[in-house]
Design a binder for these strands. Structure first.
Length: 815
DNA sequence: AGCACGCCGACT
DNA sequence: GTCGGCGTGCTC
């Protein structure tokens, strides 16, 4: 038998345990267009249902027993380059996902818009008087005629019993009997917000349950709102809204989240003059950029030291050399300010990648990069996949931010992908931060990254003076407010001087703990192991994990006592407190509740920048990347908030958060101050952050990591188990542990420290029980292969039917 | 995830 | 005798 061309194909919708590249025959008719990186349709499984796939590589084969042929080729030109195909393979191996999951990750979401053909009758055609058609064609016409509208091609052919690629309907179009319309149909699950509005019913309203009535009342006031908002304010789940839709009371519609990448913000494109430090950093990075080998560097500069100016100069240089540039920023700092800066400098050569953009826009930006119409891709972590052919420079700003880590499969870290791409292209990777991650700083110390420091603030600005306030003393002296007297005085001064203040409180809601003094019950979520938070905006107790909420009453549901005690305070409570203390102050609250509509985030920030507010109060979103010259006071209301969790990164996170928020103060000409409130002033992390002493922090923390064997001295592989009952889940975890033990015995040179199984940080979320195993290990190919094999075997075992499992290397999320 | 094959109980 | 319940195994 002659050998034939065979394509190795990643097939969509395969489960991890049977995923692999599948071999398909390339029929001679497709020989010219079937290239690696092209998407195809292939028959799959016993039913030979059509599935999408992508050609990973082409080869020759003589073993053709089970091989089926490709049905069709979807792309004229490959959508993935050789580099991207290698990246796909890398992602699959490192994140334990399927081949196609990795493919989908690197392609823009909009690429899966399907063009669906529909047919309708041409106006004025009388079906009775049609002649010159076959019986089959007449059948088609009758079906469309009876529908009195348009019929989708696929349904039409199915009803008529015709094959999928039948040309008959198009023939009828040629004969002038049918009209064809091609519509782009989105695949579900894309970036639209589900909205709901009332249906005009002329006052006729069917019987409603109390919950349904709450929704209708809310909608009567607002006309239309996102389903998420309705759930929040009416205190219901989505099911209630679905029920109302069935009753015909409300209708649902999709609102495409559209955001114009060109902003109204205008920034002057000033010439950049680097100071000595900046110039030195620039020179060293430039050298690497010019070299054939490329490399990686860490730009460590204190808050406000002008890292951005160094970037811009480097970007200029790379563009000059006709190389592609990727600039990544954390989700939160992709503000109009940043975009305007790049737009004014590079104009139409900038492509923007951001999750809040419409699918069509993202697709356009992707194409512009692919076609060489853009040189600079700026955006959040998805920008790392910008399809440049000649990538020369990648910059990651605030590289320690956890937003660079994906929280859903494939759980990749943009920093790792950037390292891969820079190495592949022999380009330059620059990581920048005021508080680098321990991993990066350690790598810089060991010479794996070139280290450049910026130790002085840009211009005349000085680092703010930091005061620490012991909140235990405040309580002792009778001040139960979340605002210490010292901070209150500083706020008064700031307001009097017409300056602005930022206050950080890393908790949403009003009161975080509601206890009954009668029986001691703490109000907690029935689905999750989490206490409920009281929200004054809607008068409900809410779970911040699953969204559960219940009506708040001042009687205990357990014992009927009315001795309800509140403790812990959130942003809502602090806002209330502030408005009493400072009647005239204009207060802006920024948290996930008040900024639910995405766009309002920007609007509020620019309003604050214009001086329309005096105090900005919010969760950690106020701490990052914002640059307001009129801010001279920063207050941290509960510095200990995130300090005492069991996660080994909690010190690092707290230090980073405190350092950053303190750095928001005094960025203009005026000197700023910061007030840090804590109940544990003796904790060294807080005093180190107060003095902005990263080096001491690093030395202390890295010693700890070495002694306890934590990253960067090992990698941590998290194996998570989720199930409906605690015992099933724990048993599953135990079975995995046993499998791991045997596998470890067979590969004695893989050194592992296995912790667990133990319950997850939050043991129960949305009614599902969670267990985990942590493995301290070197992240080697061998270990990854072993893990992949264990995962597959675990999933295949019917004993584990009720347990889902995942593995995550070096995750930064807590599970 | 689908889909087919296959082996036991309620029905015309 | 047959229709159909869902347990088990495979996907080029």
């Amino acid at each position: 038998m002659r050998s034939a061309v065979v394509a190795r194909i990643a097939v969509e919708h395969t489960a991890y345990h049977f995923d692999k590249p599948y071999d398909y025959l390339v029929p001679a008719t497709f020989a010219d267009i079937a290239k690696a990186g092209c998407r195809v349709m292939v028959p799959f499984g016993t039913g030979n249902r059509k599935r999408q796939g992508i050609i990973l590589s082409l080869g020759e084969a003589t073993e053709l027993e089970k091989v089926k042929p490709i049905s069709s080729v979807l792309d004229k030109e490959p959508v993935l380059s050789a580099e991207m195909l290698e990246l796909v393979s890398w992602i699959r191996e490192h994140t334990f996902c399927t081949w196609y999951d990795a493919v989908k990750l690197v392609l823009p979401a909009g690429i899966n818009m399907r063009i669906v053909a529909s047919y309708c009758m041409v106006e004025g055609v009388d079906i009775e008087s049609v002649t010159d058609v076959t019986e089959e064609e007449l059948n088609i016409l009758q079906i469309i005629y009876k529908s009195r509208g348009t019929v989708e091609k696929s349904r039409l052919l199915e009803v008529c019993g015709l094959s999928e690629d039948s040309k008959l309907p198009d023939k009828l179009v040629e004969k002038g009997l049918l009209n064809r319309t091609d519509e782009a149909v989105r695949k579900i699950g894309d970036a639209t917000i589900k909205m709901a509005r009332l249906v005009e019913t002329d006052g006729v309203m069917p019987k409603l349950t109390p919950k349904q009535k709450a929704v209708v009342d809310f909608l009567t006031q607002t006309y239309a709102a996102s389903v998420k908002e309705i759930c929040y304010f009416a205190g219901v789940t989505q099911a209630v809204i679905t029920g109302l839709e069935k009753k015909g009371v409300v209708e649902l519609f999709e609102n495409i989240v559209y955001r114009t990448p060109t902003t109204s913000y205008v920034t002057e494109n000033k010439d950049i003059i680097l100071n000595e430090e900046q110039q030195e950093a620039y020179n060293r990075f430039c050298e690497m950029l010019n070299s054939d080998e490329g490399g990686a560097g860490l730009l460590y500069g204190v808050t406000g030291s002008g890292k951005t100016q160094v970037f811009l100069k480097l970007v200029d240089k790379a563009i000059e050399q006709q190389k592609g540039v990727i600039v990544m920023v954390p989700e939160i700092s992709l503000t109009p300010q940043t975009l305007a800066l790049f737009n004014s400098r590079y104009g139409g050569r900038v492509a923007i990648f951001h999750s809040a953009m419409s699918l069509g826009q993202r697709m356009d930006e992707w194409r512009r990069v692919k076609n060489g119409e853009a040189d600079v891709a700026i955006g959040t972590r998805s920008a790392v996949f910008a399809p440049f052919d000649n990538l020369g420079l990648i910059i990651i700003d605030e590289e320690q931010e956890h937003t660079y880590q994906s929280e859903s499969t494939p759980r990749f870290h943009a920093r790792d992908v950037a390292r891969f791409r820079a190495a592949y292209n022999k380009g330059l990777l620059v990581l920048a931060s005021a508080t680098p991650s321990l991993e990066s700083y350690c790598a810089a110390q060991n010479g794996r990254y070139e280290l450049c420091r910026l130790q002085n603030r840009y211009g005349n600005a000085h680092l703010p003076k930091v005061h620490t306030v012991d909140m235990r003393q405040e309580v002792k002296q009778g001040n139960l407010s979340p605002i210490s007297r010292f901070l209150q005085e500083r706020l008064e001064e700031t307001l009097k001087n017409g300056e602005q203040a930022i206050l950080l409180l890393n908790r949403r809601g009003h009161n975080t703990i509601v206890t009954c003094s009668g029986c001691g019950t703490v109000k907690s979520c029935p689905n999750c192991s989490i206490s409920l938070t009281y929200h004054s905006a809607n008068g409900r107790l809410m779970c911040h994990y699953c969204g559960y909420s219940e009506e708040f009453t001042d009687k205990c549901s357990e014992c009927g006592s009315d001795r309800i005690k509140y403790s812990g305070f959130g942003t809502q409570r602090a806002e209330q407190e502030l408005s009493i203390l400072f009647e005239k102050a204009r207060i802006l609250r920024m948290d996930a509740d008040s900024t639910m509509a995405r766009n309002s985030y920007e609007q509020k920030l620019s309003a604050f920048a214009k001086g329309e507010y005096d105090i900005m109060l919010g969760t950690q979103m106020v701490a990052k990347g914002l640059d307001f010259s009129k801010v001279t006071l920063v207050g941290v209301l509960n510095a200990d908030g995130s300090l005492y969790s069991e996660d080994f990164r909690s010190y690092e996170r707290t230090f980073s958060l405190l350092t950053q928020v303190v750095g928001r103060s005094g960025r203009g000409d005026k000197e700023g101050i910061a007030v840090v409130q804590t109940v544990t002033p003796e904790n060294e992390i807080i005093s180190l952050a107060a003095t902005q002493d990263y080096d001491s922090f690093y030395n202390q923390e890295i010693g700890m990591r070495r002694a306890m064997v934590y990253p960067p001295y090992c990698s941590i592989c998290l194996v998570g188990f989720v199930g409906d009952t605690a015992s099933d889940t724990r048993d599953g975890a135990m079975r995995y542990l046993e499998m791991l033990r045997i596998a470890g015995e067979n590969s004695p040179h893989i050194k592992m420290i296995v912790l667990g199984p133990s319950v997850a940080t939050v043991p129960k979320v949305s009614g599902k029980y969670r267990y985990r195993i942590l493995i301290k290990v070197k992240n080697s190919r061998e270990f990854r292969e072993m893990t992949a094999d264990l995962l597959k075997r675990f999933m295949k075992d019917p004993q584990n039917r009720n347990v889902t499992i995942f593995a995550d290397m070096n995750s930064e999320s807590t599970f």
